[in-house]
Design a protein around this nucleic acid. Structure first.
Length: 257
DNA sequence: CGGCTTTGACCAGCGC
DNA sequence: GCGCTGGTCAAAGCCG
């Protein structure tokens, strides 16, 4: 049931979406009113109906994720996203990431362009979450290392770094400039460790989530589709899988050069 | 006391 | 080359 990512003609499988089992809790489903609401962040997204068919987004600390946007490495994929860095628009510039599920339906995700400024680009994935809290508990432990007022938004942007030793994953959190009810979280990089306190699982499930049963023994850096056991079991796994998909697509494209 | 947040300063990339 | 902007650093303070 693996879906596949279509990236510059490459096809990389992932378990990101297709035939995803319905969550036990309805709150995991895409809130109809929150789908693809033309926010500044999401520039291209599947129709609401399609999303509701394929994505089950996590409820995090009472918040409901609304949009995901995955970003493969910018230099390879950023078609038209040449304004990386400098410009505030680059931050939310989308790189289209499409994948084809088992039914042959083409799905499109959108990712932010840009890279880490120079060196090896890292996978980036973000999502917009309707939340009253700024910091969403994703099971990992983050240390805040910066806060910056950005020109593109009246709301400050917070910078977090995974506090795990040797893990260079970063995330940026900011309120949606158009709708402060939404929190835009961007993950930069992929964890090379399991989520703390998750008993070896990839991620601790969000509050109230059903028991995590996805094949989390697989190192996070591994391609998600290579993990035994098939699709993730819940929305939280979906979140993880998306992050992994970005990484995997990254690796895939690199290896094809 | 250790870990975390805050916050101003600094640095690098990009556009003009 | 200069200015703007985003991202990071690091010292100081706070909190459990």
């Amino acid at each position: 049931m693996a879906a596949s990512l279509g990236l510059l003609g490459h096809e990389a499988s992932c378990y990101a979406a297709a035939s995803y089992p319905p969550p036990a809790a309805s709150s995991y489903c895409f809130p109809p009113e929150l789908v693809a609401d033309s926010g500044a962040v999401t520039m291209e997204f599947p129709p609401a109906a399609a999303i509701s068919d394929y994505f089950f987004l996590p409820e995090i600390m009472g918040a409901r994720a609304t949009d995901y946007y995955a970003s493969p490495p910018a230099p390879v994929f950023a078609s038209g996203g040449g304004t990386s860095g400098g410009g505030a628009a680059a931050e939310n510039e989308m790189v289209n990431v499409s994948y084809v599920d088992d039914d042959g339906r083409r799905m499109v995700m959108s990712g932010s362009g840009g890279n880490n400024g120079g060196g090896r680009p890292s996978p980036r994935i973000g999502f917009r979450t309707r939340s009253e809290v700024d910091v969403l508990d994703d099971g990992f432990k983050w240390r805040k290392y910066g806060k910056k007022a950005v020109k593109s938004s009246p709301n400050p942007r917070n910078y977090y770094r995974c506090s795990a030793e040797g893990c260079g994953v970063k995330k940026r959190v900011e309120r949606d400039r158009d709708d402060p009810r939404y929190v835009v979280t961007t993950y930069d990089g992929v964890h090379n460790h399991a989520a703390p306190g998750s008993g070896g699982a990839c991620l601790a499930p969000p509050r109230g989530a059903q028991t995590q049963s996805m094949p989390c023994s697989t190192p996070l850096v591994a391609a998600p589709w290579s993990a035994p056991g098939g699709a993730p079991c819940d929305a939280w796994g979906m979140h993880t899988q998306l992050m992994h998909a970005a990484t995997a697509a990254h690796s895939f494209s690199e290896s094809s050069y």
